[in-house]
Design a protein around this nucleic acid. Structure first.
Lengths: 154, 154
DNA sequence: GTTATTGCAAAATCTTTGCAGGGTG
DNA sequence: CACCCTGCAAAGATTTTGCAATAAC
């Protein structure tokens, strides 16, 4: 069993959240969190469900959805909708607070990071009085490969 | 009949796009574009469909989806997925190139604008070599009303 | 005249819900 | 031991698809 500081702290946060809200600490909920924090990159509900079923853990899809909802509430995961049917998720602290470029042609997703997003967040907080907890920023366009494919075609 | 420079230019862009791709210029396609460019703010496919049916224009939902796809391809509209079931759309040039704050409690959506987004886009273009055509930036958090509701509750 | 596009309805996909049984606090 | 949570299956919602009829080029 590999130890992960990130995962330990996620479990701690989740536990505190459940206690604070008076929710129950069921094994299913921790199994989902545990699985999610062992996944690198994005995943969707169905693949998470299938992985858990395959490995050993019999859990229902309804409980997976339920737990994902809780994890979103305490900001342990982030929800993405890149334009496909199914929502995709990732742990919140995956590789810093990165954002995404999405190729409108082949669907490829590339990550990047830029500190200016936080400046924008400060400005938005100031002007709207929202209490902002997180953000998503997507740039849509053509990846280098699809870009040259188009140019060649002309 | 009200004239709109914005709408005229959208029609021109759409026409050129259809021609360039060898797609057909059907009345349904222009009816959808026309309707969309008369809507202020966000809309979803179903409400667009209902509006067109109510007003006069008999069109099928399949054709609405088809046309929305084309309008996305030529960047005349933007697709949003704020976390509800249905995707929402808006014309691309609606009130400048604004972004959105979304209340995680009541679902309220507020718009704002910040020029730094373009700086980030330049940097992302530079580092990834994507050819970026548009972006969406969402901040999630509590709106002022929900924020004070929470504080009062404690 | 060809063939892309439309409309309809059925299908597919993802997510939510209702309810009975079981486990947590 | 109260009642929250789970699992199951069915229902809901949104979007896609197949096919015959229609209309654009």
């Amino acid at each position: 069993m590999k130890h992960s500081k990130e995962k330990d702290s996620a479990i701690y946060i989740f536990k505190s959240y459940l206690e604070r809200k008076g929710y129950r600490k069921t094994p299913e909920r921790f199994a989902v969190l545990n699985k999610i924090y062992s996944i690198c990159g994005h995943f969707d509900v169905d693949s998470l469900y299938e992985m858990m079923k395959t490995e050993k853990y019999a859990i229902s899809i309804a409980t997976v959805y339920n737990t994902i909802e809780l994890l979103l509430e305490c900001n342990l995961i982030k929800k993405h909708q890149f334009g496909e049917n199914a929502s995709r998720y990732e742990k919140s602290f995956e590789g810093g607070n990165h954002d995404h470029l999405i190729c409108t042609d082949c669907g490829k997703v590339v990550e990047f990071w830029n500190p200016l997003v936080e400046k924008i967040q400060e400005a938005a907080t100031c002007s709207t009085q929202f209490e902002i907890s997180c953000h998503v920023l997507y740039f849509y366009g053509l990846c280098p490969a699809c870009k040259s494919k188009k140019t060649d075609g002309l």
